[in-house]
Nucleic acid binder design. Structure first.
Lengths: 206, 206
DNA sequence: TAAAACATACAGTCCAGTATGTTTGTTTTA
DNA sequence: TAAAACAAACATACTGGACTGTATGTTTTA
């Protein structure tokens, strides 16, 4: 046996991570509908008993995976924003990077499954709302630390952030049935033009 | 018996309508995940045998219901655009009406269920793509008949339509977990301002 | 040796598809 | 034109599979 002795907390932590990662992968590849506990434990390579030991039921597993996913996403954005500050990039850079996270990262499509499922599941809704609120709060903070609006802007910084997010969300959703990179590039380009005439980088922070 | 004698085509047509309506209702109220053939026939008030007679399997039922839904939606938009032409309304009116259809009509949330499900179901994707294409083509036509861009606009009419749709889509999706009418009103208002500086109503048609 | 972590087996439920039987409407024919 | 033959529409029952939750047994660490 090549069994290295692990502490209980190590064993727990490692098994939990395996389960949460598998759950997110499953959400993305199979959808909420086919994310079954059986499929998750199969992907995680642990037994059904282990899953049930750490997460009493399916809802507990889904909730924990969602929290895990959201934290990962916002941490990535945080890193991005710090790099942007350092490198002195412009609006487009951050926007582009955020878009990239949306389209090519695993955040959006996993969220899509969760949000769609929660629409008809009050239980899930109750669990997701606080998690989403925290996420948006942290996004607002990051955005506000980076930008301020021009004098002629028709909106506040938060409004422009939220419009950007809605636009990205709508584009990502459409991309499920329309695979057309040029189309999305054109939309995004137009939006960048509009946005950059209203938003300017905050000065004074290197 | 108060059985009125109906012809075969009448019987078929009425049963099919019952089934399609029930399917859409079920998609909205239960979600794709819980839209089972059993639940649909219960809502439609017909037997399982009747359903299977008209739609060989679940996929056939879903596909037919989707086509039904899309036709209904685009017909409503068509009516709206004709009324707009007659009354000489502006961009905001049509936009507002379209938004209303998105949020309060049954089109968006049923579509959301279908699109999300199709993301992990190649079979469903194949069936939805042609339906979606037709829908967007007809929307493009309507929009092009109504508007033209200003000389300073950064985009073509289609691009602005599609940005509008993405924005609405993103807002509607967010509304699942954030019930905040004022928030959406502010986003929409800002977008209207931006849009109206780029779009003008076509002349020459009463 | 007690408790946490993990594994296996079972029970109840629900669903899609199928098979087969019954009713209703339509066509044919005497 | 009325009855017989046929086909379409509708109904019921069964089958096999999948999933969640639970119960109970085994291994690993403290």
């Amino acid at each position: 046996m090549n069994d290295i002795k692990r502490t209980q907390v190590q064993r727990s932590s490692e098994t939990q991570t395996l389960l949460l990662e598998a759950t997110i992968d499953c959400l993305i590849e199979c959808g909420y509908m086919h994310t079954t506990t059986v499929e998750v434990v199969k992907r995680a390579g642990v037994s059904r008993g282990a899953q049930v030991h750490h997460y009493r039921n399916k809802m507990g597993l889904i909730t924990a995976a969602t929290e895990y996913l959201f934290l990962e996403f916002i941490d990535e954005i945080e890193v991005l924003s710090i790099e942007l500050k350092k490198s002195g990039g412009d609006v487009n850079n951050f926007l582009h990077a955020t878009l990239d996270k949306f389209f090519h990262g695993r955040f959006f499509f996993a969220s899509l499954e969760l949000i769609t499922a929660s629409r008809t599941d009050p239980d899930l809704t109750d669990r997701l709302i606080p998690l989403i609120k925290t996420l948006h709060q942290r996004l607002d903070d990051i955005w506000n630390r980076l930008y301020e609006v021009t004098e002629t802007s028709p909106a506040r910084v938060e409004t422009l952030l939220n419009m950007t997010l809605c636009l990205l969300r709508g584009m990502a959703l459409q991309s499920v049935l329309r695979d057309d990179p040029e189309y999305y590039a054109e939309l995004l380009d137009t939006w960048k033009q509009i946005l950059s005439s209203f938003l300017i980088r905050k000065e004074g922070i290197t």
